[in-house]
């Protein structure tokens, strides 16, 4: 699990979840309902943190230093919540086969409510500072336009693809970890300022996703069922029976898939990852043709690629 965390520090819990789901499928482990909701809460928190970080990076790329400092202040809140729940700000190493490592920490639910309320208020400020700022919009609208067809052809997933009009979201398409129990909206690009699939839409979609995740979070923490948080405690001689499994989750950057092969021994024979950034990066040669040098950092930031994920 420690190695899995290193796949992408920002969405470490999504990769932990993908790995756990694959192993649980081979071992045929039933995850308790309480553990599923805890996993969902942490993954959504990770999504909020990752998207906030995206906004901060984009603000830096457009030279909007002040706003990036503001946004990092909210991201700090998210990292504090991670620390409260898992004991670590990064690389939490928290999910286990059959559940999670610990039950909900005392005061965590109240803190989540506080944080969601605060971030919701601050999002309105960012909306005023960024989305209603003409200079900012001019840097993003009509830049790096990506059509829905190209997105599908190149296998783009996640918010970058949804900004082009694709509706594919694994949380809706193939619900896992109890996402089907909650009602949430999947925002897509509408081309409000430029055209559908431009840099501005990619920002808008992520802003909307933060809002949806905050709503989902406050619903989820209010409806955590009673029960165990872990199906069984693994022992040092824990082995996975021979077999293979393929799991897919919606990480903050897109579809993250994990293929695990076991021969019944102590170590897995093979683990393969399909990371969102490694397929999203393939669109760049098409998008960047004819782009001016000064727009390059902004367009690259608007795709929110993680080089750690690409070079996994």
């Amino acid at each position: 699990m420690i190695a899995v965390d290193r796949l992408e520090p920002e969405s470490a819990l999504a990769s932990e979840l993908a790995f756990c789901i694959a192993v649980e499928e081979i071992c045929n482990i039933q995850v308790p309902r309480r553990a599923q909701v805890i996993r969902l809460i942490l993954c959504e928190l990770g999504r909020v943190g990752s998207h906030l970080n995206f906004l901060a990076r984009l603000a830096l790329a457009t030279g909007f230093e002040t706003v990036s400092h503001y946004i990092l202040r909210e991201r700090e809140l998210v990292l504090d919540l991670f620390e409260l729940m898992t004991g670590r700000r990064f690389n939490p190493n928290f999910f286990r086969f059959g559940g999670v490592a610990a039950d909900i920490t005392e005061g965590f639910i109240e803190r989540i409510h506080e944080a969601t309320r605060l971030i919701e208020i601050r999002l309105r400020e960012y909306h005023a500072l960024m989305i209603e700022n003409r200079a900012f919009v001019d840097r993003l609208a009509w830049q790096g336009i990506l059509s829905a067809e190209s997105a599908v052809l190149k296998g783009l997933t996640g918010p970058s693809a949804r900004a082009s009009g694709s509706r594919f979201d694994l949380r809706k398409a193939e619900p896992y970890s109890g996402y089907d129990q909650f009602d949430f909206r999947v925002p897509i690009g509408t081309g409000t300022r430029g055209t559908i699939g431009d840099g501005f839409d990619r920002v808008m979609v992520r802003l909307e996703e933060i809002r949806e995740s905050l709503l989902l979070l406050s619903h989820a923490v209010d409806s955590v069922p009673a029960g165990d948080y872990l199906a069984f405690h693994t022992t040092p001689d824990f082995t996975v029976p021979a077999g293979e499994a393929y799991s897919r989750v919606e990480s903050p950057r897109g579809m993250l898939a994990c293929h695990v092969v076991s021969d019944g021994g102590f170590h897995p024979v093979r683990i393969q990852w399909r990371t969102p950034s490694s397929s999203n990066i393939e669109i760049l040669p098409e998008i960047l043709r004819g782009v001016t040098l000064q727009d390059l950092p902004v367009i690259l930031a608007s795709f929110n690629l993680s080089i750690a994920e690409v070079d996994r």
């Binding site: 603000a59 909007f64 230093e65 002040t66 706003v67 200079a135 900012f136 840097r139 001016t292």
Partner: peptide
């Protein structure tokens, strides 16, 4: 100036 984003050169 700190409260504003940067403009492109052609802008």
């Amino acid at each position: 100036a700190r409260a504003l984003p940067q403009l492109r050169q052609d802008q």
